[in-house]
Design a protein around this nucleic acid. Sequence first.
RNA 1: GGGCCGUUAGCUCAAUUGGUAGAGCUGCGGACUUUUAAUCCGUAGGUUCUGGGUUCGAGCCCCAGGCGGCCCA
Length: 500
Amino acid sequence: MTDESFQPLTDDLPEQLRIRREKRARLLAEGVEPYPVELPRTHSLAEVRSAHSDLPADTSTGDVVAVTGRVMFVRNTGKLCFATLVEGDGTELQAMLSLNNVGADALNAWKAHVDIGDHVFVRGEVITSRRGELSVLADEWRMAAKSLRPLPVAHKALNEETRIRQRYVDLILRPEARDTVRVRAGVTRALRESFHRRGFVEVETPMLQTMHGGATARPFVTHSNAMGMDLYLRIAPELFLKRCVVGGIEKVFEINRNFRNEGSDSSHSPEFAMLEYYQAYATYDSMAVLTRELVQEAAEAVFGTQEITLADGSPYDLSGEWASMTMYGSLSEAAGEEITPQTPAELLRKLADARGLEVDPKLGHGKLIEELWEHLVGDHLTAPTFVRDFPVETSPLTRQHRSVEGVAEKWDLYVRGFELATGYSELVDPVVERERLTAQARLGASGDDEAMRLDEDFLRALEYGMPPSGGVGMGIDRLLMALTGLGIRETILFPLVRPE
RNA sequence: GGGCCGUUAGCUCAAUUGGUAGAGCUGCGGACUUUUAAUCCGUAGGUUCUGGGUUCGAGCCCCAGGCGGCCCA
């Protein structure tokens, strides 16, 4: 225990912070520990509630309990004090301190020392008040942990920046913030259980890499002092998970963090949780079925239904089969004319112009198709939809379609208008893969810092023979967005923010 | 990267044309033995994000910057 005698602090602190520090000092001066190491708690608030549900008003149970909780509201009258205590899961229970039961000293100490936000310990009989509120009528109370900062007003929404910068305050004040954390935990747990039921093996592959790959994105660069070389934070686990499949781990998944050196907005974060899964002798068709089932099972596990309700109260139906369309087919329909992988870039550019869509004149056929599709079709999708068969040139790690020329066996899953997951029939021919990666490396050499690198070790692995496989990547944060209707910065507990 | 908006008390927000910076909650003091965001009386609390400029005078106008939000690329 700190030996510190009471003296008023004259620090240049705001009044309310200063006063709470003085209260702490005064407790110490009176020989009371403001942060005791242990308290003889006998019940959680939830246990008291469940043991005494539905009592009539003004009941004495004779049951003595010792509970703890954070003080959220205080209602003091002259000789009777009420406080609303809350514990971590949001369960509330009222504490009552009456002059008759605790005596004048303890009651005065309560009034003098206890602020909203403090953790307190209360021992006493479980009763209901005259208004019927389940309460612990104290015969003893102690400080459990003195709060030195006033909690923001509980009845007004905290501004978004403070909610993110001080998530701990957001969690204290907003039940929905706590719910989001639990929903997220429930979703990742449900995913793992779904995979384990199907015989998938969970692995963890490198996040520090000597060469980044598996996606088109700028990496974060860091430095190893011991190795005397720069390392990359991974942008995707793909190339390592494929090495696993080569090695015979034929059903494999990983849930882990990816890092992409980009800004953040309502659906992007530079650091995000990624799920990738690969299965030997699967195709993008069977992976689409698996993906739908994973999402449906997660919804079922967390909400008990596939017909979910989003944060704004609107319903969203995830049940049953999901819509499926091809990229060229849906684009042709939306554009009112036939567009194929053979449609020249020049014509696509004219199409974009005609719709007032500004596109980079350097874009080739593949990027133009994706841009056009996004504006003409993607922006209007709301129901869960698989969009299949992408241009080959923008899918360098994907297998050419088995029957359609110029198209890759790749789908994107759109949910509520944003991209939730991407699935492939994986390209496993090491010679073709080398050609594709060499082309990417040339792009990189000519200044495209999102292009992929030539990963010789990955190609060597493929040369040993990778079975035909399906693969999928799904953003966990986006899955949470899809299931809750929240923005990405609400689904990530501590998003990256600039220092204050 | 570009455009627009915001930044004021612990929290949420006001402030007319450029003329003494306010409110609610919170805090502090008092009253009150059944409250539910308790109530009632009293009271305190400010580097108006930072730096420069214009002006007799700037929260407000101008310039630069920080942080945040929205839209666009």
